[in-house]
């Protein structure tokens, strides 16, 4: 699939459980090449949304298109392009890893020969070669989780949807899994639900925050732009800073602090420091801004008080 092609198109999705509106009026388009992190507090509707996008749960309203096929009208064609890891990895403990992956590949329409090759490839990508002949029931939780990820990618889908993929992995495995997920985006659109903000920040090219079944925030995390925070005793006006080469924007953040958005092409720090000395700003600190996602997350929830209720 070509990078940039829209492969997931959801419009006006709604889903109720009794009187509870788990998801309402949710629209979302995801392009190939994107890694979208779906964030939200517990009960925000993340799993419901993912279940609807994978066709395991029917929406009460709205429509979903996967790789150009309507999920309700042509479910078989649409589902061919979906790889899905649910919250609980759907594993058959009595099968070996290889048998299981081949079964999954064949379910998605591959013949015996293709499935053998695809299973071997998926196992290799997920670091499962050494355990491919062992029964799944005898594997550790970390390996089982990786088998779950392998299952979702074995048929090379254009859409990969992973519900909390790094739960149960140790820090080394988490790092490997994130690397793997980023790699998937070369040929697919990836949606990852997580409640770990640092995971979203590290993995995603786009962050969507759900609250109360609605999208309350949707931004691309532009990896090219970077922010630094500057604190001065006698801060200059922000317009002065925006004039320095390499700084694309500047805004006051209170208490003499300024947040500067940098342009990756030019390093503005030498110019900034000479200006600080020449104009006697009383520069105290200059540090990169981290964890802006946490601020975004809390701000998005605070702006939607009904979500917190």
């Amino acid at each position: 699939m070509q990078s940039g092609t829209t492969v997931i198109r959801a419009e006006g999705l709604a889903r109720r459980y009794g009187h509870l509106h788990a998801v309402s009026g949710l629209s979302l388009s995801v392009d190939c090449g994107q890694v979208l992190a779906l964030l939200g507090p517990n009960g925000a509707g993340k799993t419901t949304t993912l279940s609807m996008l994978t066709g395991t749960l029917a929406p009460h309203a709205g429509r979903i298109e996967i790789a150009g096929h309507d999920l309700a009208e042509a479910p078989q064609q649409a589902k061919r392009s979906i790889g899905y890891l649910p919250e609980t990895p759907p594993l058959y403990p009595d099968l070996t890893v290889e048998e299981y992956l081949r079964f999954c590949a064949r379910l998605h329409g591959m013949n015996r020969g293709e499935s053998r090759e695809a299973a071997a490839k998926a196992a290799a990508r997920c670091g499962l070669e050494t355990v491919s002949r062992r029964l799944i029931r005898h594997l550790s939780k970390g390996y089982q989780q990786r088998v779950g990820i392998a299952q979702a990618i074995v048929h090379r889908p254009a859409v990969v949807i992973l519900d909390e993929p790094t739960v149960g992995l140790d820090p080394v495995q988490i790092r490997a899994a994130r690397q793997l997920i980023r790699g998937l985006a070369e040929s697919a659109a990836v949606i990852v639900s997580t409640h770990l903000l640092n995971e979203a920040a590290e993995l995603a090219t786009r962050v969507v925050i759900l609250a109360h079944g609605r999208i309350v925030h949707d931004t691309s995390t532009d990896t090219d732009s970077q922010q630094i925070r500057m604190e001065c005793r006698r801060p200059p006006p922000p317009e002065r800073l925006a004039g320095i080469a390499g700084i694309t924007a500047a805004r006051a953040a209170g208490d003499g602090a300024l947040v500067l958005t940098l342009d990756a092409a030019t390093d503005p720090r030498p110019a900034l420091l000479s200006a600080a000395v020449a104009e006697d700003w009383g520069l105290q600190t200059l540090c990169p801004v981290r964890d802006t996602l946490e601020d975004t997350f809390l701000a998005a929830l605070a702006a939607n008080p009904e979500a917190a209720a």
Partner: peptide, 14 residues
């Protein structure tokens, strides 16, 4: 109970 029904449901299988 084990969640594998979701695997079959998400697969292109009626």
């Amino acid at each position: 109970r084990s969640g594998t029904l979701n695997l079959l449901r998400a697969a292109p299988v009626p």
